[in-house]
Design a protein around this nucleic acid. Structure first.
Lengths: 329, 329
DNA sequence: GTGAAAGCGCTAACAT
DNA sequence: ATGTTAGCGCTTTCAC
């Protein structure tokens, strides 16, 4: 059986209060008593029971994070950064994966709440007043990432719209006049929270329209490769922009098969700058942004709120992004 | 403030015992009373406090997993599978990342123990009697993955040695006579637990020796690319085997720069079959094994032990692997 | 400087 | 069918 504070007290012939003072560096204890207790603790292999401590302290030193999955490299990187940063502050991380399923997501949130996390990092597919009202029923702070909810919720991310606007200007200035945008998640428009995706599209359209291009062909289907088969690529005047690198890689593979040349026949751009791009040729032009930074900021912000009662102020969506020039456009 | 069972009891004019019966579907309660309590719980937005429950039940419904990091795709996939499977059984996952730092690893284990996980999945860099003795001081079941510890510890993984032996036979039968093996982690031989890596090397040597090849050049340096520069590739009689795909991709990139052709000048093989290989050309020949399966089995085995008191029996290291033939060798 | 005791929110055993 | 009560292992307050 596990040794408790009571066992230690008995063993040392002191009270549990004294053991507590020794174990937790609290004042009001004779050095000698303290040493005796600490030695006994080491000898008997005592380990504090955090669940008991949590119960009295009302704090679990645990943060919950809700994500779609970890197949997406970006999320894995994010979680990695979150764990590291949290541990620095002595917090542990509960991961809860939703597979983008709204019901599943709610259940994850619910369970995390029951496990009494001190705070939550939330990447949600939900949106709307009802959901926000639901979130407000929780007594711990919540910070949203990637998908914005509303001003009522602390949010950390990059300026998605601005990034895509830059992309638009970048490709327009390269001389491309026909733009195709691939973003299957947009098919959930109005049904789920796809803030990030919508912002990117808006940015793209804004930027292009500044350059006099007022039409973007948007592909929202999951079988976007089939849709591409229906398009004609000549003169190299079309640029295909993908809402994330993974789609761009699929397109690349597909075009390789079809003997369509990048960038000669058609330009291609991704988004995310996932690390495997370094092994791919032609080098994919893409947008880099600091995922780890998002994770770290989320944790720091959350812990600050937990421990000091208020969110630290910073301009939201202020993180840097950068176009990484490859050879694909 | 959070509503407690006591609040509910007061609100409904019953005792906390009755509330408990209603909330947890325990027998011995009138349907009507039960409904009243449940309605009140919903209305007042009651949420059970798992830390309190854990304290009395001695069970947290939480599993801890200790991994190096999540940059390695394989680990991210594994964690994904672990989370999914655990949630199926109602368990939550604490992730603790060690960055391969032994001290860090011990601290992670310690903290997880203090948080009273019901079980632990451990990918350790430690080895030896002292560490095993340390692990035995914990009262929850531990299951090891990837790096084997000893027969005293439940282990789940593939037959690494057998897999690499198959690789050896495969490449020998392709006519390769000079074999170079790249595996930087081997530099930790004797210092850390690198079971997986050692097994793979042994398997390679075993297989090759069966085909009359008794010398393998083993590169353990981190700057393995520089070492490759010192080698001469002619006749295409050399095969480079990498202990994981990532190294192989680095080699590929390097050779591309150096205008060394794969497989004409030199053969190349990886290990892992990470998902991005589908975007890489030439197609890398590699070994596939079921990471998700390892994760699922670890969770199921652990939960079985937690709930039924014994590890289920299965032949260890029994998981399938398969050589995926590409164009690189 | 130390001990005693209450209580965190829940479950479980025992009364009624 | 329901109420009462004693903990789970710890922290914290108050008394000595």
């Amino acid at each position: 059986m596990r040794i408790t504070i009571k066992d230690l007290a008995e063993y040392c012939g002191v009270s549990s209060g004294t053991v507590d003072r020794a174990l937790n560096n609290r004042p009001g204890i004779k050095l000698k008593t303290k040493q005796k207790v600490l030695e006994a603790a080491a000898k008997l292999n005592y380990r504090p029971d955090f669940t008991a401590r949590s119960l009295v302290k009302g704090k679990t030193m645990t943060l919950g994070i809700v994500l779609f999955d970890l197949y997406n490299r970006t999320f894995a990187q994010l979680l990695n950064a979150v764990e590291l940063k949290a541990k620095e502050y002595g917090y542990f991380i509960y991961v809860a994966l939703t597979n983008k399923d709204p019901d599943n997501e709610k259940q994850c949130i619910e369970y995390l709440a029951n496990h009494k996390v001190d705070g939550m990092i939330l990447f949600t597919v939900h949106q709307g007043e009802e959901f926000e009202h639901y979130l407000e029923s929780f007594s711990f702070p919540i910070i949203t990432i990637f998908n914005f909810l509303s001003e009522r919720w602390q949010y950390i991310g990059i300026h998605e719209r601005g990034a895509m606007k830059d992309v638009a200007l970048f490709i327009a200035d390269k001389g491309y006049t026909k733009i195709t945008y691939i973003c299957p998640p947009l098919s959930f428009q109005g049904k789920r929270n796809i803030f990030t995706q919508e912002e990117r599209l808006k940015g793209l359209e804004e930027g292009l329209s500044e350059r006099g291009i007022n039409h973007v062909k948007v592909i929202k289907q999951n079988d976007y490769l089939d849709v591409l088969d229906g398009l004609v690529f000549k003169d190299g005047d079309m640029a295909i922009v993908c809402s994330c690198d993974l789609y761009a890689l699929e397109v690349m593979n597909h075009f390789k098969e079809k003997k369509i040349k990048i960038p000669e026949d058609v330009g291609l751009m991704g988004f995310d700058n996932i690390d495997v791009l370094k092994y791919i040729s032609p080098k994919l032009t893409t947008v880099e942004y600091p995922v780890e930074e998002i994770g770290k900021m989320a944790v720091e912000s959350l812990i600050y709120k937990i421990e000091d009662g208020k969110f630290n102020t910073y301009s939201p969506m202020s993180l840097d992004f950068k176009i990484i020039e490859g050879e694909s456009i």
